[in-house]
Amino acid sequence: MHLQNRTFIISGGSSGLALATARLLHSHGAYISLLDMNAEAGDAIISELGSVRARFHEVDVTDTDSIAAAVQGTVEWVQTTGAALGGVVAGAGVGNPGLIIDKNNEPLPLAAFDFVINVNLRGTIDLIRQTLPYLTQNEPLGADGERGVLLMFASSAAFDGQMGQVAYAASKGGLASLTLPLARDLSRFGIRAVTIAPSLFESGMTAMMGAKVRQSLERVMEWPKRAGKPDEFARVARECIENPMLNGTVIRLDGAMRMPSKL
């Protein structure tokens, strides 16, 4: 999928890895529709990128009507620019750790589990399913007849989640597991599905970690022994979008890191 003059819907696009991806795609000629709850940050990004090829929509991905309004707004924008939809970059996510049963013998509140699942897993699928009817109507591109690409953000926790990550690992594991069937469902339309599973990367979520936790995680990385940088993630994201042979797969981006059971 070519980036130039294509429009990409990016959830969680006002911060972290999604923002780094948005900036890189925009720098290569893409039109960017940013979805995020943080309107102040979103407006600042539009000021940075300029309003010609960037738009912001205040969206709560747990609210299907909120997603619908953003998708419709993006489609209407596409009709004015002529830059057809290229795909979805689903980067909205939360952590919210919690043991399945705590030191007081209290089980993890179901509301806490639901919150993580609803943002990370359900929110991703809802955004994708609401965008797909427009992607399937695209004119096929090139000899392969490609119409679009879906890029999802999982985590190394999908494979080796730690204590306190039952909800988070379940949400990211769900994304990893659905990547192949999603690609198979959409193969007849020429729409690809790819997932990146990063380990420790510099982001708003990891910025909230204490120094001790962060150092413990860095110690179990093989090389390089540091958190990944957002631009390193964004370069892989760009390749996932542009390389037609990347389909139905989950790419671990983790510096050979394998999480220990606990820190």
Rank of each mutant, 00 (worst) to 15 (best):
L3A: 03
Q4G: 01
Q4K: 15
Q4P: 00
Q4C: 03
Q4H: 08
R6K: 15
T7N: 08
F8Y: 15
I9E: 01
I10L: 10
I10A: 05
S11V: 03
G12Y: 07
G13V: 02
S15K: 14
L17G: 10
L17I: 09
A18C: 05
A20P: 09
T21W: 11
A22W: 13
A22S: 05
A22G: 00
L24G: 12
Y31A: 10
I32S: 00
S33T: 02
A44P: 03
E48M: 04
G50E: 08
S51D: 15
R55H: 10
H57R: 01
V59H: 08
V59D: 01
D60Q: 04
V61E: 09
D65I: 02
A68T: 14
A70D: 07
V75M: 09
V75S: 12
E76M: 00
E76H: 02
Q79I: 01
Q79M: 08
T81E: 08
G82W: 11
G82E: 08
A83N: 05
A84H: 05
G87A: 03
A90E: 04
A90V: 04
N96K: 15
N96L: 15
P97I: 06
G98M: 08
L99G: 00
I100F: 13
I101D: 06
D102R: 06
N104P: 00
N105C: 09
P107T: 04
P109S: 10
L110R: 03
N118H: 11
N118E: 13
N118I: 05
N120A: 04
L121I: 06
D126Q: 14
D126S: 12
D126F: 13
L127C: 11
Y134G: 02
L135E: 06
Q137D: 13
E139Y: 00
E139S: 12
L141Q: 14
D144F: 12
D144I: 10
G145A: 13
E146F: 05
R147F: 07
R147M: 04
V149S: 13
V149R: 01
V149Y: 02
L150N: 07
F153C: 09
A158G: 01
F159Y: 14
F159S: 11
M163S: 06
G164W: 10
G173W: 09
G173D: 06
L175S: 06
S177R: 13
L180F: 09
P181C: 03
L182T: 08
D185K: 06
L186Q: 01
G190T: 01
I191P: 06
R192V: 10
V194C: 02
I196M: 05
I196W: 05
A197M: 03
P198R: 14
S199K: 04
G204T: 03
M205E: 02
M209Y: 13
V213N: 06
Q215S: 15
Q215P: 00
R219H: 11
P224W: 09
K225L: 08
K225H: 08
K225E: 12
R226Y: 08
G228V: 02
P230C: 05
E232W: 13
V236Q: 12
V236S: 09
I241Q: 07
N243W: 07
L246P: 01
I251S: 09
R258F: 09
R258D: 03
S261L: 14
K262S: 12
